[in-house]
């Protein structure tokens, strides 16, 4: 047995390995893309469409900017107070086809010194935090950005 993998937010991503993708929605009338997904009306003020469809986002994009959290973020971020805080890089990534910038944590082990603006990164599945014991607990899954030049 292992912890049950559960998305930290339902419907924001799908798949595993090479097939892992962020999920947004698209307006069939004006082509606007929404992430996090917009399931009601299109937010383009010149568009009256209210029938958005789910769409996977591009796997790869380029770094718009990046930073990191040198101090433990407050709740509801979950981290083990017993362990020393390890700085975590955050990456804002521009997806060319969707013309959108999506923020995410960098993959584990990627630090700000590994990143540059304009660098190509890809979305990968990751674990945000785990709770409960090895057999019955939950692993909360999320998306991470990883430089495509890195193999791991």
């Amino acid at each position: 047995m292992a912890r049950t993998s559960t998305p930290v937010v339902a419907g924001w991503f799908t798949g595993a390995g090479e097939d892992f993708r962020l999920l947004g929605t698209e307006c069939p009338a004006c082509s606007s893309v929404f992430f996090p997904r917009e399931d009601g009306m299109c937010r383009n003020p010149g568009c009256a469409c209210d029938d958005l469809v789910e769409v996977p986002l591009s796997r790869r994009g380029r770094v718009w900017s990046y930073t990191d959290a040198r101090y433990r973020p407050p709740a509801p971020y979950v981290s083990d107070p017993e362990l020393p805080w390890e700085p975590r890089a955050l990456v804002a990534v521009e997806l060319a086809a969707e013309r959108i910038v999506v923020l995410g944590q960098a993959a584990l082990g990627v630090s700000v010194s590994d990143l540059d603006i304009g660098m190509e990164v890809e979305v990968v599945a990751g674990v945000l935090d785990e709770e409960g014991d090895e057999d019955t607990g939950t692993a909360w899954t999320t998306w991470h950005w990883r430089p495509t030049g890195v193999t791991a």
Binding site: S65, Y66, T67, P73, R88, L90, L103, I117
Partner: peptide
Amino acid sequence: LRFRVLGATNPAYFGLYARRRMA
């Protein structure tokens, strides 16, 4: 959500803007 999913505090956004200005 930005705290739960990303641990993105206000200074994290300020850091993004600052790095972008530098580049």
